[in-house]
């Protein structure tokens, strides 16, 4: 599907609705995420940003509408199947495997790219070992990229908050996703950690060509790094466009600051 700016879209959400009992989380939301760009979803608390992300990654099944990735419908697929299609994700509240070290977390990220089954892992020497070493090399590249070198054997539960967020980003990246969903990657960070994270997000988009969908509350960051922005309010999309267009949109100002402004 062609976009106004000429790019083809990697993810199309068309008329998606989701209700939880009487609560309308999303109503007829449509977005087109252009390939290789940074796409931000913003909106006040409870606007339905995370539930939209949860539908894209397969935790919720939409009540109506369709979600297509690379032109193919992914409606009704399970989260692990969607991961196999090449959609990675991080969580708002860090969801690392705390019993494991940084390296093991990132190796887990490559689960979908590895093949070892139960029987060959019992034997280990031979095929499994070769696979482990090959994927370890890829993970080490990523550890270099995220500057986690001295922490690779550190238990993730003991890391500082900002570092945990970075490890989670690394775990999602390890699967080499085409599309990366980041749910508030900078929430709760100090200025310095935020700057680091912004740099990583930009580098991922630029060097790896990964498309990024970002939920973030820090308007400065969003306006700075996003190519396109969709604004949700009370479950509905109220605006969609470049940062400048969104900033000038009266409905966005109303949603954020109230009607009397």
């Amino acid at each position: 599907m062609a976009e106004p700016n000429g790019h083809d879209s990697i993810l199309s959400v068309r008329g998606v609705s989701k209700n939880f009992g009487g609560v309308r989380a999303n109503n007829d939301v449509s977005i087109e995420v252009p390939r290789g760009k940074i796409f931000a979803i913003i909106g006040p608390n409870g606007a339905g940003k995370t539930s939209l992300l949860n539908m894209i990654s397969g935790f919720y099944v939409p009540d109506a509408g369709e979600i297509a990735f690379e032109g193919k419908s992914i409606n009704g697929l399970k989260p692990n199947e969607i991961a196999e299609h090449g959609i990675g994700r991080t969580f708002q509240n860090i969801a690392l495997f705390r019993g494991m070290n940084v390296l093991q977390n990132m190796m887990l990220g490559r689960h979908v790219l590895m093949k070892t089954g139960v029987l060959s892992s019992f034997v280990y020497w031979g095929k499994t070992q070769r696979e482990e070493v090959a994927h370890r090399e890829k993970v080490e590249e990523l550890i270099d990229f995220l500057r986690l070198n001295d922490l690779r054997k550190a238990p993730t539960g003991e890391l500082a908050y900002g570092l945990q967020k970075r490890v989670e980003l690394g775990r999602a990246l390890a699967a080499e996703p085409e599309l990366l969903l980041l749910d508030e990657p900078m929430a709760g960070m100090n200025q310095e950690e935020k700057e680091d994270m912004v740099r990583y997000v930009l580098d991922i988009a630029e060097q790896r060509g990964t498309t990024i969908v970002l939920i973030e509350h820090d308007m400065g960051v969003v306006m700075d790094i996003s190519d396109r922005i969709a604004v949700l309010d009370q479950g509905e999309k109220i605006a969609d466009g470049t940062p400048d267009e969104v900033r000038a949109n009266p409905r966005v100002i109303e949603a954020y600051l109230g009607a009397d402004h």
């Binding site: 494991m100 689960h111 892992s121």
Partner: peptide
């Protein structure tokens, strides 16, 4: 220490995150 074992520990630690990285 290999892929299957890590997947098992992932399920123990965070089953939702395990699903999102592609573990059935």
């Amino acid at each position: 220490r290999s892929r299957v074992g890590r997947a098992l520990v992932a399920i123990r630690d965070q089953d939702i995150a395990a699903e999102i990285i592609g573990i059935n």
